[in-house]
Computed example of a mutant assay.
Amino acid sequence: MQTCYGIDIGGTKIELVACGHDLEVGYRRRINTPTQDYDAFLQAIAGLVRAADADLGETATAVGIGVPGVVDRGSGRQLSANVPALTGQNVGADLQRLLRRPLHLGNDLQCFALSEAHGGAAEGYASMFGVILGTGAGGGYCVDGRLVAGYNGIAGEWGHWTIPATLLARHALPILECACGLRGCLERYVSGSGLALIHRHIGGDQVEAGQIEASQVVARAQAGDTTAKQALAIHRDLLGHGLAGVILAVDPHVIVLGGGLSKFDQLYRELPAAIATHLFKGVRVPPILPPTFGDAGGARGAALLARQRSGAI
């Protein structure tokens, strides 16, 4: 097997990378995501692949695609996604008809984890858990460098574990509805948007354009703003609870963070103690590391997924 393409589908952009046998990213191309028009979305993917073929002067032997949301394994249809046009659609079958080459779909968050398990921050560890802290919260679990997807293909969806009402009450936070249909999901509180929500809920001020973002909350806390520092402390406690649950469930040898919040150095210094608070005596917190591949991780992981499922590695 020669070149494989990996495609990462996000709420604002779609990125394609090409990986050779050495798993190095030798080519990258990005376009905006058509979020509302399904036909436009399909044509955008097909156009992206055709452009890569033309630029590289070859046809990739397989394509891996990291798709957001959950897929019904019975029907193959998307149940939920941050790209509204995909909901209810059989994305895999429709793209297969257009691309006419081996196509392998995976969850975008799981592809991030797979990438970091191969040549990334989790290289050499027997198991790893990749944690995304971005617009949402989720992740993926790899053992011996291979993705563990699970019976429903949702292994790693820790963002939809429910936070105990007593823990939310400790911080005077409401029990929020989640787009998944559940209430009190970790994602609503520990994602980047969750941090901004916590800051707003405890009285953080707004900006002229509207609500401030997570990066602004962190910047204000670093500048000494009391409300922002309190928001970070609450966020850290809730995130510590969530990751303690991950450790108790699968006991990974390392945790790798991704998403926008993974860029803040203080998280790596303060998170281990916040996790330990929610673990019983004798349970150690594994290393918590920043990602190696950053924004390229999801697309690279999709290419790796295609190579693994094609039997190349």
Results as ranks from 00 to 15, higher is better:
Q308T: 06
M128L: 05
D37Q: 11
L173I: 09
C111P: 08
Q206S: 08
L48V: 01
T61M: 15
E123I: 00
A44L: 10
A44P: 05
A312D: 05
L98A: 08
Q2H: 06
T33A: 11
G184F: 00
T277L: 14
S75Q: 03
L257Q: 12
L271V: 12
R77Q: 11
G139A: 10
Q43P: 05
A155I: 01
P291C: 12
H21K: 12
R30V: 12
C178L: 03
P102I: 08
G47W: 00
G69F: 08
A221L: 07
A40K: 00
A302H: 05
E157L: 07
G88V: 01
R77F: 07
T162G: 15
G64I: 00
P164W: 01
L56Y: 00
A117L: 05
A228Q: 02
Y125L: 13
P290K: 02
S215I: 10
I175V: 10
V49P: 12
V70Y: 10
I255Q: 15
P84I: 03
A303L: 04
A51P: 00
A165G: 09
R29Y: 12
G130L: 14
T33F: 11
G150N: 03
G258D: 12
G240S: 11
Q110M: 03
D94M: 09
Q222A: 15
K229D: 14
A306S: 10
G282K: 06
D251R: 07
P287R: 08
